[in-house]
Every structure is written in structure tokens, then in C-alpha cells.
Design a protein around this nucleic acid. Sequence first.
RNA 1: GCGGGCGUAGCUCAGUCGGUUAGAGCGCCGGUUUGUGGUACCGGAAGUCGUGGGUUCAAAUCCCAUCGCCCGCCCCA
Length: 432
Amino acid sequence: MERRMGSKAKMSGFPEWLPEQELVQARVLQILREQFGLHGFTPLHLRSVEPVEVLTSKGEDADKEIYGVQRLAAEPGTAAKLGLHFDLTVPMARYVMQNRGSLVFPFRRYQIAPCWRGERPQMGRYREFIQADIDIIGEGSLDPMYDAEMVWLLAHVMKALPIPAVQLYVNNRKLLEGLYRGFGIEDITTALRIVDKLDKIGADKTIELMVEAGIATATAQRCIEVANIEAQDASLRETIGAFGVSNDLVEEGLRELVAVLEYGHGGGVTAALRIARGLDYYTGTVVEGVLESHPKAGSVCSGGRYDNLAGDGKVKLPGMGVSVGVTRIMALCFHHGLLEASPKKTTADVLVIVHDDESVSQSHAVARQLRERGVACVVSHRASAYGKQIQWAEKVGIEYVWFPPRKGGEHEVKNIRSGEQAAADPSAWTPR
RNA sequence: GCGGGCGUAGCUCAGUCGGUUAGAGCGCCGGUUUGUGGUACCGGAAGUCGUGGGUUCAAAUCCCAUCGCCCGCCCCA
């Protein structure tokens, strides 16, 4: 059966990296796993597919971006009962509900996995993308202190990655809702959606839209004043106090938000009251991070508190989680040249030269000896001229070329960057 | 889902008021260099001009359709 795999065209929204890029991403993933592990989060792999009801129950218009999954042989015209998850939080909530009897709370886990959304692709926005998601779930209740800890953890993790600086912005939905209620706004969701466009369309247009939605001009103006607030410390209390709105939501939201700010970031996290985004299951703290150098490229990490995602009438399983948009980060960094692609296109550090067809097995023996000691290497694919073999090593970014002994001579290693060549012992030599 | 742009060699593109065998740079392969790369010079391979149809003596070029990719909106990692 002769069939060529795929077409040469890229599939929009399904990014695939080159080896040198993939190696950089692998490093990023490794750091994320190390950091998450350091904080006691357990890696947990959950399935990619969920019943459609599970995926849609917590997001109103999320259904149109969900990819349905069914057998090719399914009855034509039938709606898919299964869908690919669009984030890692919703499946995790389902899992925690199902296994709550076997889990120990507060439950911490992380998962790094692809997610799928059927949106129109663009730079940094894909239909398949890797997300690194980390959550902590409480049983009955979850101390607001965890909100602060998770935001701190997110800031810490982003700093540990080999990427340009990320600025984190936090807000609190209780605070916003409390203020908006205090202003007399009833349809909070609509108001927030409009205000969220402030950056793009400007204040005048925003007010116009709000008035169209039945909000008084003066009220709309106050909303915009709120949206413009930024703070890095408890001075936020006075700023908010000036609006003269006092209710439980405002008090609670303010307390939580200030707690996040004061968790020891030293100003690394900014409260920005314009941040209203995130999936709509968030109930309190919300956080969002952008690359300082490219804030308009969208958020590269985000998260928040969700008190009602998991649990039913009887059990309450509130959670706090954040996730890192690995694919978006990689795409932005590659596109804008924000980080060096790996100089290497392979994991090998050494290329073992093959002198001639008769000594191939000798070269393989050297390679085995090196690998036993953890030195990554490959044997040259062809006993061509040394220059050709060295050239191949150069092309894939291998720094060392190993010459097995000839005619009873010694092993030699050449560093092809420096040009240095010297005798070496395969049972002792290590790169660098 | 709505709006706009673009599909010519592996990559980036030139060529388009229709006219002989469709070009460049980079990359790739080979040679100068009788087995130790990177530079330089010389040579070579490589294209159903996205696809289908139409107009014409003649289409990469004009018309229609279709598919794909990219950008903006929406939304979000």
C-alpha cells in the first residue's frame, strides 16, 4: 500500500515545531514539572475526552468551540456525545467529584496536556495547544490564603522559565460585582463584557455601549473609573473607599485581593480592576499574565478561584487554579525572537565517526560505552569522508566528534566549535 | 460565525494591461579539496504556477467556482 502521509500544507491552528524549537519547549515543560513538584502537586493524567454535558454545563456559549468526537462509522447526522476538553480544569473538577472518597483534601495536582478549541486561529491562538494546569481543591471550604499562594506560585514559575518578563494582573470578581451592584447595575455580566473592551475601543465608545445596554451615563463613567484602577499594595482600600460603596461583596473581595497583593511579591503583582476575563466559572480571585514586551499578544497564563465548579448540592469542592499557556508562549517567543532556539536539533552531544564499512561495529561499541555513562551520542550514518561526517554533526548542532582508534592508535575527540582535537578515554570522557 | 489579504522550486519571493523551453536569493547535492567541516569559486537537481471549469490561436497572467493558509473581529492559553 503506497500512500503519502499528509499534505505539505500546514493545518491551521495545529502548530508543529521544528526539532530545535521542540527542544526549547521540552526545557520549558521540564522546568514547569520541577516547579510544580517542588510545591507538592502530583502529576495526574486525565483523559482527553469528556461527555459533552460535562464540558458545556459550566460554560454558556462554550459549546460552539468544543470539538465533538465520534466514530467515523457513526450514524450520519447524529450529534457527538463526546467532546475534546477545552481546558484542564473542568475535567479535573469532574474527576475530583467522582473520586472524592479516595482523595485526600486539600487535593493538589497538575496536568500538562493539549487542549482543543474550535476558534479561528491566529498568531498565538490555536485549535490545539498545550496548557500546564495546576489546581488545589478543598473539601467544604478552601482558605482564601490559597489564592495568594497560587498567584505567588504562578509568578514564581513564570520567572523560572527562560522567557522574557511576565507581568501578572489580579482582580477579584466579588469586588467588581459588589461595586457594580452598589452602582445599581443589575446585569453585571453584560456590563463587565462591555467594560472589558475598554482597552480596545476607548472610553467614549465604551460608555456609548453601556448606555445602549440601559446603564446611566454617570454610572458607566464610574465603571470606567473603576476599570482604570491599578494598585500594588493596600492603598487599594482607600481608592475603592472613595467610591462610597459598602457591602459584603466589596468588603470580602477587597480583603481577598489585598491579601494576594501582600503575599510577598514585593510589587511583582499588580491589582488591575479592568481584568474581568477568564472562564465564567471563576467566583473570586482572577489572575492573568502577559509578556511585558508584548502585552497585546494576549495572556500567557491565567487562573482564578472557582467555588462552584465541582461539588453538588451536598458537597462543596471549591478550588483555586492557574494555568500556563505553553503553546502560546512558545509561539510568541519564536515569532518575535524572544528566546534563542536551541542551537541543537538533537539530544546527542557526540557523533561517533565511522572510518569505513569494516569498522562500523567498532563505532557502535564506542557509542554503547558512552551511553552507558549517560553521554548522549549517535553513530554516523555513513562512512563518507570525515569532512562530510563532521558537516553532518555541525548541521544538527552536535559539538563533539569522536574518532575511534585506527591501527592500534588512540581514541580522539574533536570539538568542532573550537577545532581542538585530543586523545580521549571512552570510559572517562564527558562533554564540556 | 463575520470581514479582509494571499496561494509560483524545500523556504522567502519576482514574474501578471495573455505571447516562444517560468526566474532570483537562500537551502540542498556534487566538484575545486585523493578521508578532518565552517569561507570562496564552479556546476547540478528541483515547480501539476493551490484545485476544477470557462474565455482565447495562446492563460502563472483574464472570468467563475472551490479548497487552503494568513490577518482583524468575537473569544481566549
